[in-house]
Simulated assay, not measured.
Amino acid sequence: MTIQTITPFLWYDADAEDAARFYVSIFGNSRITHLSRYGDAGAGPKGSVMVVGFELEGQRFTALNGGPAFKLSEAFSLLVDCTEQADIDRLWTALGEGGSYNVCGWLKDRFGLSWQINYAGLPALLTGDPGKAERVMGAMMAMTKIDVQALKDAAAG
């Protein structure tokens, strides 16, 4: 068994548990691993959730209810590689509900976490022939949600 030594640590104001439960409901091989609560000392009310440990597709995450001092931003995002358009469509809809959409497969969920819902074959389409890579990049820059067939069509010329 490999031990994961680097774990993304996400700061929320007060909805870390809700966010973690939402993410776990969307991805397979996912679970809440632990909850800890504030005692008499700390940034949150006694008994409220302080830290949530969770796994998405076997990847560990930690979420903290740390108060309003810091906010999630697009400077950090989670990249999800999808092999099928149906997976892109499902994740795009589920994660984007109540959030906002941006270009090139980027969205921000209702908790403020940024995601890139992308096609796993994209690196291969962007490598090799510079003309092909330029067509694919141009097609992707015009997209909001990733359209796998449109990327493949752009690669074919």
Results as ranks from 00 to 15, higher is better:
D18W: 02
R31P: 00
M137Y: 12
G28L: 04
D153M: 03
A20M: 09
F111V: 05
Y12P: 00
R31L: 03
D40S: 14
K132D: 08
K71P: 00
M1H: 13
V24K: 02
A142T: 12
I146W: 06
I32T: 10
K132N: 08
Y23A: 01
D89A: 15
G138S: 09
H34C: 08
L151P: 10
T62F: 11
R60L: 10
G66N: 04
N102W: 05
Q149C: 07
A41N: 09
L79A: 07
I117F: 05
A16M: 01
F22I: 11
A41M: 13
A124C: 02
A124Q: 07
V49K: 00
S100C: 04
T127G: 13
T5K: 13
G96R: 09
G39Q: 14
F9E: 02
D109H: 13
D109Q: 06
S114E: 00
A124R: 08
A142K: 15
D15F: 02
L113N: 13
F54W: 04
V49M: 05
L95V: 14
D18H: 08
S48Y: 06
T2Q: 11
W115G: 02
T33E: 11
C104I: 03
T144N: 15
A63Y: 04
I26G: 01
Y101G: 00
A43E: 14
G121S: 02
I117T: 13
G47P: 07
R90S: 12
S25A: 15
A155N: 13
G128A: 10
G105D: 07
W92D: 04
